[in-house]
Amino acid sequence: MIALLTRDLRLALRAGGGFGLGLAFFLILTVLVPFSVGPQSALLAVIAPGVLWLGALLACLLSLDRLLALDWEDGTLDLLATAPLPLESVVTIKALAHWLTTGLPLVLVAPVLGILLNLPTPGYVWLVVSLLVGTPALSVIGTFGAALTVGLKRGGLLLSLLVLPMYVPTLIFGAEVARRGAEGMATSTPLLLLAGITAAVIALLPFASAAVLRVNLR
């Protein structure tokens, strides 16, 4: 399992691996928002938590279509399915590798990008906390979407259509934690719900992902 994780991380960091793609997208999106909204720092401060969450979510989505499709194209998935690793752990490791190369960097740069959007000072901690708790769910749900569309040519668009609705609960509660934090209100209820969603998704979805992957490999 560790071999699979290190292989995926290594592949992501090598040429054409797509590491940094999501980060660059996140950066550009947050730079563009003040241009489109106009130079009203009070308005930016109000929308900053939501925009940052939406940006992080879309950046996560960007690299999902390569998550399993590349392994399917070159036959690696067939070979992994006949290897001693259960497919459930294969998809879990893939989701973890996706989070480490996409989600975690987004969490780390979010405070820097918060400055661009005039995020109120109390919001920084809660933005990082909410992203840290919420982005693993994005990777795991995304892996499920990738497993559903794995054999399809140009499955990337369909993948987005399937995955985005499933991201809604995470987005609602994640952005709510960041917004309440920025406004100095209590955050424990949405944070607990966000953590609950993430925990449930991590516990259950790998089984669904492995099941659809088995069907798609036939």
């Binding site: 292989r7 592949l11 090598r14 054409g16 691996g17 070159d74 036959g75 067939d78 070979l79 006949t82």
Partner: peptide, 15 residues
């Protein structure tokens, strides 16, 4: 017990 080798070799070009 089975080692399967199909039409594709499952190689990663950047490794």
């Amino acid at each position: 017990t089975i080692a399967y080798a199909g039409h594709s070799d499952g190689l990663k070009p950047t490794l």
